[in-house]
Amino acid sequence: MLRYIKLKFHQIARATKRSVFLNKHFPRFKDPVYWVGDRKSFARAGFIGAFCMMLPVPFQMVLGSIFAYYLRANIPLATALAWITNPLTMWPIWYGGYVFGTWVLGSPDLFDQFGDIPLGSSQWFNEVFPHIWQAFFLGNIILGIMIGTVFYLLISHFHLIQWIHRLMKNDNSGGNASR
């Protein structure tokens, strides 16, 4: 099964790299930094993907891929992280961003006040959304920046975390062996 997944991944990557549209509009698309990358490229992709994950807009994966291209980040990682908000997870994630936004703005949570209006309906967008949009967008953008920063720092300093872990492991094993 793992062999099949690797084969499909390589087939998709080859087809993507050969795309006439992508090569015409994105001339540096074949640069290895976008696909293989280095620590900086992965760290940038971590920030971009986590930030795009929190944006309450459609097509976050496409947006993450475009940001990754222009900021020279690893495209697959940025796209995969943006995919965390999918149709099953986007409502609780974005609601959390809205609640955080109400806390930042010091405004009341009005979301439940309109409980009889179906969520996502045209009536909801006409009557509820005008009251909550500021907290909704501000909270999600701030959380996107915060989560993206955490991802960036963790990925860019992962080698230090591994080094500390190895150092602690050697200290623990060395101390036990001498007793």
Rank of each mutant, 00 (worst) to 15 (best):
F151A: 02
V99T: 13
G106S: 02
L143V: 10
P92C: 11
F26M: 07
A80S: 05
S122V: 03
Y69M: 04
M90W: 00
Q113N: 09
P58I: 15
F9I: 03
A82W: 04
K8V: 03
S156K: 13
L63N: 09
L77E: 07
L71F: 15
V150N: 08
K169S: 09
F137A: 12
L119T: 08
I93E: 07
I48A: 05
I142V: 15
R166H: 07
G148D: 05
V33E: 01
Y4V: 11
S19L: 03
M61K: 11
F137I: 15
P92F: 12
L138D: 01
F158A: 14
A13F: 01
I147G: 02
T79G: 05
H165G: 12
R44C: 10
F125M: 12
S173C: 12
L119Q: 06
I164F: 07
V57I: 14
G144M: 02
L154I: 14
G101R: 06
L63R: 03
K169Y: 02
I155R: 13
Y70M: 12
S173I: 14
A82P: 01
M168A: 15
C52M: 02
L81E: 03
A43H: 03
N74G: 04
N86S: 05
W94G: 01
W124E: 00
A73N: 07
G97D: 02
I164W: 09
N126H: 11
Q123T: 07
